[in-house]
């Protein structure tokens, strides 16, 4: 990942949510508790690449995505876009960033304003940014619809969301996301609420957009199969930290971290003759408030030793671009 190729650099990102302690507890002097949703996460998103952020609930993947899209403020760390920190952007620079980074959400049934027509929904980012005049915007909306494969565009312009299927609504959401010609699209579980037979179309569309528009994407999902299908690189998160990251093919076919191995082994396979390996993971996902000392995966890991219970591993390099946070991979 060369310097000038990266669009976004995420450095030591932290997001802690404080649990408001009651009045009495504050007087008594009880320690304030935090949910460490994102706990020191660093990665780069490079041009024309689809980076997958994978993890289960509580992994912090959605929070990370929302922080990058400026929907939430980080507690610590920085996000650098074109050499500037986006946390403190304001004025013109902020507007520029907003145009450059857009987001697509999970629920197709709530992603569009029910009172807006399709045209109006897609036009909204243009209107907010004072772009062009009515005619030019109409053409831009039409173009976005066609790029989202809703053709003929005129047939969709004046429909309301409730007249569209889930897949169509998601395409409208994608059209809305690309109408400003962004360089980065953050997609949070864009297909998990769609029927399986329609997912392929949306996934293929995202790939096409990357190829034709040079769009980079942060694809957030818990579904490793879809990540395998469209992501160039994958970042595996667990309880707010990165466990493993690297080129998708490598990480998924030769996983190093015990969590990654267990995750992959847990995915059901649609070939009835294939017998899956047992997923080597014990126990349940712990409460996010009581994140264990040391490696946070240790309580569930069969390979954990004493060191894992007390010290937290860094990301160690395995191969070029492939890293894992596990003492088993620590270079001697």
């Amino acid at each position: 990942m060369t310097e000038n190729n990266s669009i976004i650099k995420v450095k030591n990102l932290k997001k802690y949510f404080s649990l408001k302690s009651g009045f009495i507890s504050t007087i008594v002097g009880k320690e304030e508790k935090f949910v460490r949703a994102v706990d020191d996460v660093s990665f780069d998103i490079t041009r024309k690449k689809i980076i997958g952020l994978a993890g289960e609930s509580g992994s912090g993947k959605t929070t990370t995505g929302e922080i990058i899209a400026l929907l939430q403020k980080p507690t610590d760390g920085k996000i650098v876009f074109n050499g500037k920190k986006i946390n403190d952007l304001s004025g013109k620079a902020l507007v520029e960033f907003r145009r450059a980074c857009q987001m697509v959400f999970q629920d197709p049934y709530e992603t569009l304003n029910p009172r807006f027509t399709v045209r109006r929904s897609i036009e909204e980012p243009l209107l907010i940014n004072g772009w062009g005049n009515e005619n030019k915007r109409f053409e831009k909306v039409k173009d976005a619809l066609e790029r989202a494969e809703l053709r003929p565009a005129e047939d969709f312009m004046y429909r309301f969301p409730h007249e569209l299927s889930g897949g169509q609504r998601q395409r409208v959401a994608i059209a809305r996301g690309i109408v400003l010609d962004p360089v980065l699209l953050v997609a949070d579980e864009p297909v998990s609420m769609l029927d399986v037979s329609i997912r392929a179309g949306i996934l293929n569309l995202l790939r096409k957009l990357r190829d034709n528009m040079g769009l980079s994407m942060l694809y957030i999902s818990h579904d490793l199969s879809t990540i395998k299908y469209i992501c160039d690189e994958v970042i595996i998160m667990y309880l707010g930290r990165i466990m493993e990251k690297g080129p998708t093919y490598e990480v998924l076919s030769q996983p190093v971290h015990p969590y990654t191995k267990a995750l992959i082994a847990s995915v059901p396979v649609s070939d009835p003759d294939v017998k899956r390996e047992e997923a080597e993971i014990k126990g349940d996902l712990p409460d996010q408030i009581d994140i264990p000392e040391g490696c946070r995966f240790a309580p569930r890991c069969f390979s954990a030793n004493d060191r894992c219970q007390s010290e937290e591993p860094e990301l160690y390099s395995i191969k070029k671009g492939h890293q894992a946070a596990c003492f088993l991979c620590e270079p001697k």
Binding site: S197, A200, N204, S225, K228, Y229, D271
Partner: peptide, 30 residues
């Protein structure tokens, strides 16, 4: 699943991403 006879079943198979199998082009049923 191995010997599908109905076009819909065949279509569904094509739409399913798999973590194990070879990377093939996924196809939606329009």
């Amino acid at each position: 699943l191995k010997d599908p006879r109905h076009p819909y079943t065949m279509g569904l198979k094509n739409a399913f991403p798999s973590i194990l199998l070879e990377q093939k082009e996924l196809i939606s049923i329009p």
